[in-house]
């Protein structure tokens, strides 16, 4: 039996063999490679394309995230999943969730937009942040206005590193409005690797944020765990 998470950019396969988690990740367009020789009756799917791939059962990303995160943090209260297209906040204890997929300022797309502006790789944002000596205030929560505010801060003499740190704070503040108080807060999704964003969010929420060892495979694992 495998858990298969086919999202908008990547596809992941997870199985548990002798108590050990085995996984494989590929680009969405290559998702078929993950299931060569595997029967649809042995697949539990999740992700945006969960209903377009062979499966015997499917589960939404929201429920998959709960089961996947619980494997690492059984006491999780709140899960924040910041993806490229949307941000999901799941209140596990209250069995409640909200999704922002309307405003790009609160999703990974905004970070990508900023990285493009500075002509750097998305994964470099975190290291830029760590080199900042000051953190300028960026108050706008709208992506377009935030960018013009960032440009003003550059003109005012802040370095790109500092402006990126300020942007992470603005981003984290935007996300924080969606997050209820929690003892165990777990972050998943593409942005977890951005340490700058993570520390800004911890600072704003005044909470330690947990990140699973293998954040990319949490949903595929959760799909598998949901049925077993």
């Amino acid at each position: 039996m495998i858990g298969l998470d086919v999202g908008s950019t990547t596809a992941k396969k997870v199985s548990i063999e002798d108590g050990e988690i085995k996984y494989q990740i590929t680009g969405t367009h290559n998702w078929k490679d993950l299931i060569t020789g595997i029967d649809g009756n042995d697949i539990i799917s999740t992700g945006y394309f969960r209903n377009s791939v062979p499966h015997c059962a499917s589960v939404t990303e929201i429920t998959a995230a709960i089961y996947g995160v619980r494997y690492y943090f059984p006491d999780v209260d709140v899960i924040v999943d910041i993806g490229g297209q949307d941000t999901k906040v799941i209140d596990v204890k209250k069995n409640n969730f909200i999704i922002n997929d309307k405003c790009s300022a609160g999703t990974g797309a905004f970070l990508e937009f900023v990285a493009n502006y500075f002509k750097i790789e998305l994964k470099e944002l975190g290291s830029f942040h760590s080199r900042a000596k000051r953190i300028p205030a960026i108050n706008n929560t709208c992506a377009v206005f935030a960018l013009s505010e960032m440009i003003s801060q550059l003109v005012a003499g802040f370095t790109p590193e500092e402006v990126i740190a300020g942007m992470h704070y603005a981003f984290a503040r935007r996300i924080s409005f969606m997050i209820p108080g929690a003892r165990t807060l777990v972050l998943i999704g593409g942005t977890v690797k951005n340490k700058g964003m993570l520390s800004a969010l911890e600072d704003i929420l005044q909470t330690e944020i947990q990140v699973p060892d293998e954040p990319q495979i949490v949903n595929a694992l959760g799909a598998l765990k949901y049925y077993y």
Binding site: V59, T60, E61, T63, N95, N96, F97, I99, D101
Partner: peptide, 17 residues
């Protein structure tokens, strides 16, 4: 589709309740 995803996840949440 975005609304359908929410409805489906809500159904799953009701299943868990």
């Amino acid at each position: 589709e975005q609304i359908k995803l929410r409805l489906e996840a809500f159904r799953e949440a009701l299943d868990r309740a």
